[in-house]
C-alpha cells in the first residue's frame, strides 16, 4: 500500500496491482508459494513483511509457514538490496592499513550501517572477512570490481561510477 500524497488515503501502488495479478494467477495452484515469492521479489526488489502477510492470506497458508519458506531459500531477501553491492574488506591487511576508516567513510557517505541499503536502493554496504587482495589493501569490491589501495578521498569518485 502506498499513501496518496494529496489525500493521505491508502491507495494501491502499481506494485500492489502487479502482486494482485500474480496472486490471481497462482490462487488455487498447488505449490504456488515459491513462484509467488519469486514474482513478488521481482516486483518489490525484496519481500516486505506486509507483502508476505498478504501472500499468506491470499494463498491461505499460515504466515509462519510462508516465513519459514522465505528464510529457507538463499534467493529471498527480507530487506531491500541495493543495485550495487559494496563489500568492504576487513581482513587483517586491510584492517592494519585503515580498512575500518574506509568502512566508516562509506557508512558516513551513504548514511547506512553494515548490511544496510541506501534509501534510493543504489547501494548495499557489507563487510567481508577477506577478499584475497591483501596486496591492494585497503580494498573494497563493488559488484565484481575490486578497488584497491584506497584513500577515503577517492571514494566519492569511485561511487560515482555506479548508478
Amino acid at each position: 500500500m502506498a499513501v496518496c500524497k494529496c489525500t493521505g488515503e491508502q491507495v494501491e501502488s502499481p506494485q500492489d496491482v502487479q502482486l494482485n495479478e500474480l496472486l490471481d494467477h497462482y490462487r488455487g495452484y498447488a505449490g504456488g508459494l515459491i513462484p509467488v515469492l519469486q514474482g513478488a521479489q521481482e516486483i518489490y526488489g525484496y519481500l516486505p513483511a506486509e507483502v508476505l502477510e498478504t501472500i499468506s492470506q491470499e494463498l491461505k497458508l499460515p504466515f509462519s509457514e510462508v516465513f519459514g519458506v522465505v528464510t529457507f531459500y538463499a534467493q529471498f531477501h527480507l530487506k531491500p538490496r541495493g543495485r550495487n553491492i559494496i563489500r568492504v574488506c576487513l581482513g587483517t591487511a586491510c584492517h592494519v592499513l585503515g580498512g575500518s576508516k574506509i568502512f566508516q567513510a562509506l557508512k558516513d557517505e551513504l548514511g547506512v550501517e553494515n548490511g544496510g541499503t541506501t534509501e534510493d536502493l543504489r547501494f548495499t554496504l557489507e563487510s567481508v572477512a577477506c577478499i584475497g587482495a591483501c596486496g591492494l589493501a585497503p580494498c573494497i569490491m563493488i559488484n565484481d570490481d575490486t578497488h584497491g589501495r584506497l584513500v577515503t578521498s577517492a571514494l566519492k569518485n569511485i561511487l560515482e561510477q555506479y548508478k
Binding site: S56, S64, E65, F72
Partner: peptide, 26 residues
C-alpha cells in the same frame, strides 16, 4: 501447533545451523 488449521503460529525458520522454531517474521 500446525495441526490446528487456524493456529499454525510457529514453524521452522532459516536453515542449517541457524534453523530455529519461530513465529512469522521471527
Amino acid at each position: 501447533c500446525n495441526d490446528v488449521e487456524d493456529r499454525s503460529v510457529i514453524n521452522f525458520a532459516y536453515r542449517g545451523f541457524k534453523t530455529k522454531v519461530a513465529p512469522a517474521m521471527d
